[in-house]
């Protein structure tokens, strides 16, 4: 029971400080889930993000469900998911009910400009950590470059990157094991 509440609280903290969608959540996940609580490894988080790209729904919610279910099964998934959505529900309800002209306050715009800079720096830091864990050879580097170029240059869905990466991974793996001369 204690761990279920911890799941709720940790994900509530993550949900309450994620500005700008699923990717912006990654630095918080790395800090809270991987480094402090050790509930999942960096590799597992990357796997969840990959799966989150091709399953429906909000990526932050998918990641919370994954981590919760890994730790405590279905109850864990429910507590983690409720945790990640609770701060937004409360904040948005307050804005919708009381401060409808929220965006017209000058300070809000200035604070957001500062927060956006922080989010850019945080994500860059997260990418460096992921790079060390996720890219181990020239094959990985080429997949990284292709995926980066695809997303910067086009606005097509990331699903195609995911499908192509799966196909490359499987092909590369089978070629490597054949070259290895029956090591496995």
């Amino acid at each position: 029971m204690k761990q279920l509440f911890q799941l709720f609280l940790v994900f509530a903290r993550i949900g309450g400080f994620t500005f700008g969608g699923g990717y912006a959540m990654l630095p918080m996940i790395q800090n809270e889930i991987v480094e402090r609580k050790k509930w999942a490894t960096e590799e597992e988080i990357m796997n969840y993000y990959a799966v989150g790209q091709c399953t429906p729904g909000v990526i932050a919610v998918n990641t919370a469900t994954f981590v919760g279910s890994k730790l405590r099964g279905i109850p864990g998934a429910i507590f983690a998911t409720l945790g990640v959505i609770t701060p937004s529900v409360i904040i948005i309800t307050i804005i919708a009910a009381l401060i409808r002209n929220f965006l017209e306050y000058e300070a809000v715009g200035h604070a957001l400009a500062g927060i956006n800079v922080a989010v850019a720096a945080l994500i860059l830091n997260a990418v460096i950590t992921l790079w060390k864990k996720g890219i181990k050879n020239i094959f990985g580097f080429l997949v990284f470059l292709a995926s980066l170029a695809y997303s910067v240059l086009t606005d097509w869905s990331p699903i195609f990157v995911v499908i192509a990466a799966i196909a490359f991974g499987i092909t590369y793996g089978s070629v490597k094991s054949r070259k290895g001369g029956g090591k496995e």
């Binding site: 590799e43 796997n47 990418v127 890219i135 997949v143 170029a149 695809y150 991974g169």
Partner: peptide, 19 residues
């Protein structure tokens, strides 16, 4: 093997989001 291909791709997607 599929995840071996997926991890660098996800890294690329997040780098693009960062950009």
């Amino acid at each position: 093997n599929a995840f071996e291909g997926l991890r660098p791709a996800v890294c690329g997607l997040i780098a693009a989001a960062c950009f």
